[in-house]
Design a protein around this nucleic acid. Structure first.
Lengths: 68, 68
DNA sequence: CCGCCTATGCTTAGAAC
DNA sequence: AGTTCTAAGCATAGGCG
């Protein structure tokens, strides 16, 4: 099946939400890189995510810093 | 005409580059908002652009801070 | 400049493996 | 859990008003 339309609201299902986060984060970074390349601009992007995979390692928020 | 494919390199034409910057920046912010909504993450994005429209007003770089 | 349009290509949700 | 596939939906280049 192709892409189904999803509601613009918090995804309740943990697994789906995590997949969506990763997929879309990737797409976002790609687009950011493209913009930086096409228009010669400096770019900084920070996504603060709760790391739900290793809660025992840290209760602090992880910082994913994508500098392009 | 529909969307033409563009090369992934610096857009030399000033006018085109500026249009592309604005259009894509808008799209990027939209996607960032979606990601923040769908996955409940905090998001910060900064694009440093040379303001080519008012070079007489400031030689400093403008900082466009889109916090979602 | 701004907005609208439309064709085209890119993104990505869901499935199948 | 990862990988790959596919099509639905979305982003957007270029044109026009």
């Amino acid at each position: 099946m192709g892409r189904a339309k999803i509601a613009m609201e918090l995804i309740q299902n943990d697994k789906k939400r995590k997949i969506t986060l990763n997929t879309r984060k990737q797409g976002l970074v790609k687009k950011a890189r493209e913009l930086a390349t096409l228009c010669d601009v400096d770019f900084s992007m920070i996504i603060y995510t709760d790391d739900q995979e290793t809660p025992h390692k840290s209760s602090l928020r992880n910082q994913i810093n994508s500098t392009v």
